[in-house]
Design a binder for these strands. Structure first.
Lengths: 206, 206
DNA sequence: TGCACAATCCCCAAAAAAGGGGATATACGA
DNA sequence: TCGTATATCCCCTTTTTTGGGGATTGTGCA
């Protein structure tokens, strides 16, 4: 039995979804809210398996609601519900903690399928959205890609990023403390920064 | 016309793919390699639109090959080709820079579809893989999730992560330098670390 | 041959960070 | 009301980092 909560401001859609879910084998609609504020307050108590969250809500929107709720309901999966396949807001929703989305025009059977799929560890999405998602996590331009730094400097920077002290780096690489310092100074010079954290942020791509 | 290169060690599959692609309207197979080493050497010269890369290659595997090639062929899209839908290696491929994958048993028409889709900015993938991908980029914003730190401490830690100096943080938050120091000490105490970088690594989740 | 560059080391000094000890005010709950 | 937690500030000290000036060796290229 998958427990579901609906957050949707339009009465007809909200009640339609509720009827669909409660009328289907294996699904139970615990509650339906019409505002994000109400959901934020009461959801942690209900703690359902899946939430169908409308993106365009009056007041706090669905994306913000997910952001606030995901940290308090770690096992709850959020599915965003939207009229248009707006890449940007879907992408933002996923960043905020949603696991999938569905269009409001989706056929009832497909809605139930999506809920099951999300409940079972999947994340149905179009291939365009998928590309945006993977692009965003590939963007960790690794230290190794830098053409600016020499091999040794990259090694040093990796150790700096680990949080090692100069003397620890020196020991690890079997070189003198002063050598570590020289490399560090050259790295800072090349990256135009004044501290370890700035260097890491710059090369890792904030 | 989409230009394609194949990297596949099994002769029959390689030649089959080549025939399929060259025999289809709008596709051109520029070359087919049997090893990653050869591909790594010659691909930057050919610079095709799409590469079909086998994951299980003798010597350097397909994932490593993508890692090395993606930085040099930024506009080339890589599609991984594999026998089993092995979540872990597909996920690793995407991290390395691939844009999609397809199973070897896929029907020829579907293969061409996938190439087109990837060429046109999509990333076809199963919903299970999609979940792993979004999970990996969601866990970036985790400072706020910490139950251990107070609100103020989280603010301070965010500023520390930006690379600001104590005096800059003090100015930003309109508090004294000593207050910043106190918070920092409490943060380090709670996280059981001894430096800024360690704290950032710990809370951001290495 | 000579020059640039990478990697190694050294000295001096100042700035910043980290560790130790405190203090005060406020708010919140047992 | 008392204790606890949070946020604010101050002192002293040591360690670490950063910035400036060097130097030497080897390698590879013009």
């Amino acid at each position: 039995m998958i427990t579901v909560v609906i957050v949707e401001d339009v009465k007809e859609i909200r009640e339609g979804l509720q009827l669909l879910i409660d009328g289907s084998e294996g699904f139970s609609c615990k509650q339906a809210f019409s505002t994000a504020e109400e959901a934020i307050e009461k959801l942690p108590v209900i703690y359902p398996d899946v939430v169908l969250m409308d993106i365009n809500l009056p007041g706090i929107n669905g994306i913000e609601a997910v952001r606030k709720l995901k940290s308090r309901c770690k096992k709850t999966q959020f599915i965003m519900s939207t009229v248009y396949e707006d890449d940007e807001s879907i992408f933002e929703s996923l960043k905020a903690g949603a696991s999938g989305y569905l269009l409001k025009k989706t056929a009832p059977v497909k809605i139930l399928d999506s809920i099951s799929e999300v409940y079972n560890g999947g994340s149905p999405m179009s291939s365009q959205i998928a590309r945006k998602v993977i692009a965003s996590f590939q963007q960790k331009n690794s230290i190794d890609d830098s053409e600016l730094l020499t091999l040794r400097e990259k090694e040093i920077l990796k150790s700096l990023a680990k949080g090692l002290r100069y003397k620890e780096i020196a020991a690890e690489l079997n070189i003198g403390l002063e050598t570590v310092r020289t490399h560090t100074r050259n790295i800072y010079e090349k990256l135009q920064v004044q501290s370890r954290t700035e260097a890491i942020n710059k090369i890792m791509g904030q």
